[in-house]
C-alpha cells in the first residue's frame, strides 16, 4: 500500500495533522489529527510502498511494545487511513 499523492503531514502548534493539498486532493475537505506515533510512521513511509509488517517493525524500533500489540495498533491506524481514502 501507499499514501496517495497530495496528502501532507503538517505540524500544528505541537500537534500533527494530515490535510489534502493541491489539485489531486482539492475535494478532500477534511483534516485528520495524528498522534506522535502515527506521525512518526507517516514520516517514514510517505512516498513509498509499504506493508503492515514494515509499520510493525518501525513501531517496535521506536517504542517499547510487543509485536502483537504493535500489529493491533497498526491495523487500527490503517483502518482509519483507509476509511478516509488516504491509501492506495
Amino acid at each position: 500500500m501507499k499514501i496517495k499523492e497530495g496528502f501532507t503531514l503538517r505540524p500544528l502548534c505541537g500537534e500533527h495533522i494530515v490535510v489534502g493539498e493541491g489539485l489531486s486532493q482539492v475535494n478532500f475537505n477534511k483534516m485528520l489529527s495524528m498522534n506522535d506515533s502515527a506521525a512518526y510512521l507517516w514520516e517514514n513511509v510517505q512516498g513509498k510502498e509499504f506493508t503492515l509488517d514494515d509499520l510493525v517493525t518501525l513501531l517496535a524500533d521506536r517504542y517499547e511494545v510487543s509485536a502483537d500489540q504493535a500489529m493491533d495498533d497498526v491495523k487500527q491506524m490503517i483502518a482509519i487511513w483507509q476509511e478516509h481514502g488516504i491509501l492506495e
Binding site: T8, V19, G22, L23, V26
Partner: peptide, 12 residues
C-alpha cells in the same frame, strides 16, 4: 479554491 500545491506551505 486552492488548487496549487506549491502555495500550500504558505497557507499552512
Amino acid at each position: 479554491f486552492r488548487p496549487f500545491k506549491h502555495l500550500a506551505d504558505g497557507w499552512h
